[in-house]
Design a protein around this nucleic acid. Structure first.
Lengths: 110, 110
DNA sequence: CTGAGTACAACGACAGATGAAGTACTTTTT
DNA sequence: AAAAAGTACTTCATCTGTCGTTGTACTCAG
């Protein structure tokens, strides 16, 4: 199980990437992450909610109250144009990061 | 230019990976990193030297004074067996991390 | 009525990265 | 001969994202 610390700073990008496919709320996004990675990565609740705060402050997402279906009321999140641009940059950055780390971690890793 | 924060936690692995090819000293290792990545990643001095302290404390490297050739005296570093095992684990981890992030950053990134 | 699941929030602690500054000696440039 | 640039390392305080703990609040299955 990959630690969140390993991919530090990319949690924001994960959330934005999922939100780019449609509005959603915290609990569901964390479930999506877990399922997409076959339990290889499970985002911590605290990590996720502090990410939302950060993303909102930066203007990358907006939030609105959702319909209460189960338990506590949901908060839905929506990606903004600014958020989409940031996501684009991050996707580009990830491509370069991969190459850089591959070279340096090296060891003929097949 | 990739920030060290992006690949947080992997600086230790970079240094170990280079030391696995032979003993070296700080300044030279930082130069190797810069050249290997074509200036795409330049490790900060403070980041590197604090990494050495950490790696020594964990028993992944040992150090010994080198011959003074230019300026201040060099400190050479050597990877230990424990360090080699850690490096192996990290290389494995990186392979998984790449897959996980690829899935989550997604967006048909070509 | 108890426990598991859904859904979120506040708080303090931690660790790696960073910026700024300093030490010390050598080589190159002006 | 003085200044600047390069080599090589150190100390210290600060920042930021993550993590652990705890708490709130409601629903549903047994």
């Amino acid at each position: 199980m990959i630690s969140s610390d390993v991919i530090r700073g990319y949690n924001d990008t994960f959330l934005l990437s999922l939100l780019a496919q449609g509005d959603s709320y915290g609990y569901d996004l964390s479930r999506q992450i877990r399922e997409l990675t076959d339990d290889a990565y499970i985002i911590k609740e605290t990590t996720m909610y502090s990410a939302f705060t950060r993303l909102k402050k930066k203007g990358y997402i907006t939030s609105y109250p959702g319909t209460v279906t189960q338990g506590k009321k949901r908060t839905y999140y929506s990606i903004t144009e600014k958020g989409k641009n940031y996501l684009k940059e991050k996707r580009q950055e990830w491509r370069i990061t991969k190459e850089v780390v591959d070279k340096l971690v090296g060891g003929d890793n097949k």
